Simulated scan of single mutants.
Amino acid sequence: MNFDEYCQQKSGSPGSGTYYVLKRAPIAHQPLLSALFALRQEFEESVKEVSDPAIGRTKLAWWQKEMAALAEGSPTHPVSLALAAHSDGSQTIYPALQTWLAGYAMDFEQARYPDYAHLQRYLRQVGGTFATLVARVTAHEPDLAGNWAAASGEALMLAQFVEELGSDARRGRIYLPIDEMQRFNVTAADLINRRYSDAFNALMQFQATRARDALFAARDAFPAEEQKRQGVLRAQIALALALLDEIERDGYRVLHQRVALTPIRKLWITWRSSSSFWR
């Protein structure tokens, strides 16, 4: 298996949202985008798939060294090799990769956020940086991509927090601000023990509405000359909006399950997202 094949498998299996999202990119750009999505999966697994924080920190430390090796021209991991082969210059994206990885390290610094202002730092470093890296690949003006793309990544993370609330809570991480949970009279124990209530539904409606509004605002902020170039981000936003609608229809039953769209719906939504009538 070569590094491109590794990235294709790591980024998203057939039928996954990422699989269909990447199909919205020009063929020439798909290898680099697959590498970025694969790297995101590697980072997330280093944080979310470990029960011992010491092991997670060790994995992230290894990735810090690997990103430095990428910038120096001596990467060893298949994802890093793909980034080196397909990016214009590894040193160009290295600062963003450092910022991105530092965002994931925040998961080992704190499991709760007192208010939305504190959560936004995490959103910017993880979601905003990733979306900017993705946008740069096909952007008309790559150096300006961060001005409008970062908001997409932050909004996508807000939607992800709603989708993965139950599984995140069972891993000891709750990305809903403490003051908002207190306002709606929902406790961490309620989430961990899967206690549904009217108060929980009200909290989730608030979270879903904020995520939905952020997704619409981020999508509408794309410059006119970038609209057709950003098929990947547009497809991600479309999928996130559809999933939020599905979660809402299901009564916010996200504590004991992960609500998902069928592959055929993902295919249809991502195709439609790149058409001129999707606004």
Results as ranks from 00 to 15, higher is better:
1 M>S: 10
3 F>Q: 00
4 D>L: 03
5 E>C: 04
7 C>H: 06
17 G>F: 11
19 Y>W: 08
26 P>T: 12
32 L>V: 07
34 S>I: 10
41 Q>E: 12
46 S>H: 11
51 S>F: 09
53 P>G: 02
54 A>D: 13
56 G>M: 00
56 G>H: 01
58 T>L: 06
63 W>H: 06
68 A>R: 12
71 A>D: 15
71 A>M: 07
71 A>S: 15
73 G>C: 12
77 H>G: 02
80 S>R: 04
81 L>T: 07
81 L>M: 05
87 S>A: 10
89 G>K: 03
91 Q>L: 04
98 Q>L: 05
101 L>A: 07
104 Y>H: 13
105 A>D: 11
105 A>P: 04
108 F>E: 00
110 Q>A: 06
112 R>A: 01
112 R>P: 13
119 L>I: 06
123 L>N: 01
125 Q>T: 15
130 F>M: 15
130 F>D: 12
131 A>S: 13
131 A>R: 12
133 L>S: 08
133 L>M: 09
134 V>G: 06
139 A>M: 09
143 D>H: 14
143 D>A: 13
145 A>R: 01
146 G>L: 05
153 G>K: 01
160 Q>M: 09
160 Q>W: 07
161 F>C: 14
162 V>H: 08
162 V>T: 08
163 E>N: 13
164 E>W: 02
164 E>R: 13
165 L>N: 12
165 L>A: 13
167 S>Q: 14
167 S>A: 14
168 D>G: 08
168 D>Y: 15
172 G>R: 00
173 R>F: 03
176 L>G: 02
177 P>E: 00
178 I>D: 10
178 I>T: 10
178 I>K: 05
181 M>D: 00
185 N>M: 11
190 D>W: 03
192 I>W: 00
193 N>E: 10
198 D>A: 07
198 D>M: 01
199 A>E: 06
207 Q>T: 08
211 A>P: 10
213 D>F: 00
213 D>L: 05
215 L>A: 05
216 F>T: 13
217 A>K: 06
220 D>H: 03
220 D>N: 10
220 D>G: 07
223 P>L: 06
225 E>W: 01
227 Q>R: 13
227 Q>S: 07
228 K>G: 14
228 K>M: 08
233 L>C: 03
235 A>L: 04
236 Q>G: 12
238 A>V: 11
238 A>I: 08
239 L>C: 06
239 L>F: 03
241 L>F: 01
242 A>L: 05
243 L>A: 08
243 L>S: 09
244 L>F: 05
247 I>C: 04
248 E>H: 13
250 D>P: 07
252 Y>C: 08
253 R>H: 15
255 L>P: 00
257 Q>M: 12
257 Q>G: 15
263 P>S: 05
270 T>C: 04
278 W>K: 05
